[in-house]
């Protein structure tokens, strides 16, 4: 738990070093640099893996549950 918070803080500190200017964001705007796949594909993948594993959780909340038997 503390390790996780420390890791997040270190990630944050890295960012304070050299901000990327708004005009240097060409590569970051690429679709393959997105943190999730397109909405439909992401939802399908969550369903596929989530219904067969005990673990859950992603970058969002409030998604509700399912009676996945």
């Amino acid at each position: 738990m503390t390790r996780a918070l420390a890791a997040i803080s270190i990630v944050a500190l890295l960012g304070a070093c050299a901000p990327v200017a708004p005009y240097q964001r060409g590569y970051l705007a690429r679709p393959d640099m997105a943190l999730e796949a397109s909405a439909g594909t992401a939802k399908a993948l969550e369903k596929t893996y989530g219904s067969k594993e005990a673990a859950s959780g992603s970058a969002t909340v409030g998604g509700g549950g399912c009676g996945c038997n």
Binding site: S9, A12, L13
Partner: peptide, 17 residues
């Protein structure tokens, strides 16, 4: 572990002029 973590987190908010 608490204080160094807090300092790390806070230093992020110091942005360049």
């Amino acid at each position: 572990m608490r204080l160094p973590t807090a300092i790390l987190a806070a230093s992020v908010f110091i942005s360049h002029p």
